[in-house]
Computed example of a mutant assay.
Amino acid sequence: MTESGQDGFFDRVYEMVAQVPAGMVATYGQITKLVGEPRKARYVGFALHVNPQPGIIPCHRIVFADGRLCEGFAFGGPEAQHEMLAGEGVSFLPDGRVDLARHRWPAGME
């Protein structure tokens, strides 16, 4: 993978997101902490918006801290993200948010 973003930040994001297993989600803020750049959640969003390997880097598994899906999901909108997550067995609360208590990837949550 080529270096992209400031000091390879985008590449670090892609490497971390690629580790989120099917059936699990991580939050934008969680990814920033795992790559050593806390408080750059918006930049994670920028990186995922230009995902160079859709289908390989599972950006659909990244959600907001409250479990909401991204309104501007780059690969088809929130309906597509919902469908992809549901297809992996992710469950949702009645208001449409991901059930983080059941499906949040535990990495970095200690």
Rank of each mutant, 00 (worst) to 15 (best):
P54H: 13
L69G: 04
I57R: 11
L93M: 13
G87E: 10
V63L: 03
G36H: 13
E83C: 00
M109A: 15
V98R: 11
E83T: 14
E71Q: 11
P106N: 13
Q19F: 06
T27G: 11
C70I: 01
D99G: 01
V44P: 07
P21F: 02
R39I: 10
I56C: 06
E110T: 04
P58I: 12
A65Q: 15
D99S: 06
H49Q: 12
K33Y: 14
E15H: 02
M84H: 09
W105S: 07
L93C: 14
P21A: 08
G5H: 11
F9D: 03
G29E: 11
D95S: 15
A18C: 07
M84T: 11
L93I: 10
A47V: 00
R42N: 14
W105P: 01
V13E: 01
Q81K: 01
E71A: 15
G36E: 12
G89R: 09
K40C: 04
H49Y: 11
V90K: 09
E88A: 02
P21M: 03
Q81S: 06
R39P: 01
G8S: 04
P21Q: 06
V90R: 05
L93E: 07
V20M: 07
Q53C: 07
R39C: 08
R68M: 05
D7P: 00
R97G: 01
I31A: 00
E3I: 12
G72N: 09
L93N: 13
G89P: 08
L100V: 13
R61A: 00
A18L: 11
T32D: 10
D7H: 14
G87Y: 14
F92L: 00
E88C: 04
H49T: 12
V98T: 02
C70K: 09
E37Q: 13
E83N: 14
E3W: 02
P78I: 02
D7G: 01
Q81A: 10
F92R: 08
I56M: 09
I62S: 00
G108K: 14
E3C: 05
H60T: 06
M109D: 15
E3F: 05
A22R: 14
M84W: 10
P52L: 01
R68D: 04
F64V: 01
P58Q: 13
I56F: 12
E110S: 11
L85R: 08
P94H: 11
E3Q: 08
L48W: 03
P106L: 08
G67L: 00
I31C: 00
